[in-house]
Write a protein that binds this DNA or RNA. Sequence first.
DNA 1: GACCGACTAGGACAACTGTCCTAATCGTCG
DNA 2: CGACGATTAGGACAGTTGTCCTAGTCGGTC
Lengths: 193, 193
Amino acid sequence: MLEQTTREQIVRAADGLFYRHGYEHTSFADIAAAVAISRGNFYHHFKTKDAILDAVISVRLAQTREMLDRWELDGTTPEARIRSFIDILIANRADIKRYGCPVGTLCSELAKLGHPSRPEANRLFTLFRVWLARQLTLLGCGGDADPLAMHLLAMSQGVATLASAFKDDAFIAAEVERIHLWLTHQLKPRRRR
Amino acid sequence: MLEQTTREQIVRAADGLFYRHGYEHTSFADIAAAVAISRGNFYHHFKTKDAILDAVISVRLAQTREMLDRWELDGTTPEARIRSFIDILIANRADIKRYGCPVGTLCSELAKLGHPSRPEANRLFTLFRVWLARQLTLLGCGGDADPLAMHLLAMSQGVATLASAFKDDAFIAAEVERIHLWLTHQLKPRRRR
DNA sequence: GACCGACTAGGACAACTGTCCTAATCGTCG
DNA sequence: CGACGATTAGGACAGTTGTCCTAGTCGGTC
């Protein structure tokens, strides 16, 4: 952890810059400056800008899988795990207010650029989608699990977009509470049947 | 309508390109090529790229006001007007699947660029926000009108983001139905009190 | 000590960016 | 007709972009 290879440093710096400034608005020079290496050295590790993007996406995919696994272990019930997902809006609210959701904004940008790595970025969404659907299936949602997972994803994306536009903490808190309530209402009737 | 000034043509072309390819990814050359004029002529109408963006935003603001006014006239009840808003997700689904919401994606991009016109772009959101809040107030939502308006905006933004990522018509239809249902449930208890 | 691959620095390269200038053309009005 | 402002074309300009090359340094292996 203390010692990082140059390649890891590059990916980490690019990850942050892509999130904060966007993929296209981040140049080779920006990343090289952030890591304090020369552009020549840079080229030795990554031949093209797209290659860096691919590396960043694959790191994000790995980190997301880790996070979902952690929630799987820490949450005693599927319901608690889903609530972990909902609460990232609170935990990351400072960054979300400034730069939006890292997944949503990246996918949106790559869509507009018509970038070949777009499908790879979308897998970040799919990761959350199937994980949420699995938790919902465990709760007995059956065939509705996937639509409900998509609905949860959509709500969190919407909150992130508006939180970034209006920079409103109270709005985030209110929406998160609303989503928690929605989940409660969604589950209660199923238990009684 | 048949005869357009060069300036209007430029703004219209820039509007479309900013939506489809993003602001930063659209160059002077792209816009000039779309209107089939020289870059020199271009400069005669707009001194800077930011000036074009400002013109595009102000046109979008005007068009949005027009649309809201039309809904105001066409919708016999506040409820019907709100449902007009919800249904734009259906009406514009083809573009939304490809490029996302014109308002949300522009605001997100300008946020990452730290662009000075960001507040102006956010006014697009505010237009919808206060309009929805007014309709909800008319329905007797009182102090909850603004939070409910924000919730409606958030849901539509979330649907647009995921629709663009997954390109799924059925998802859009299901979410729109869900939002309509939410509105119904939101209003019924208030009428009885 | 000789050697070799991994790593690094610095800069070259053409293409493109937004910006700006100059000269020519156009339609309109006196 | 002559004059004038609005419009247009074409290109110059410096700066930046992603890409690539060459030369040098370093650490470890025969």
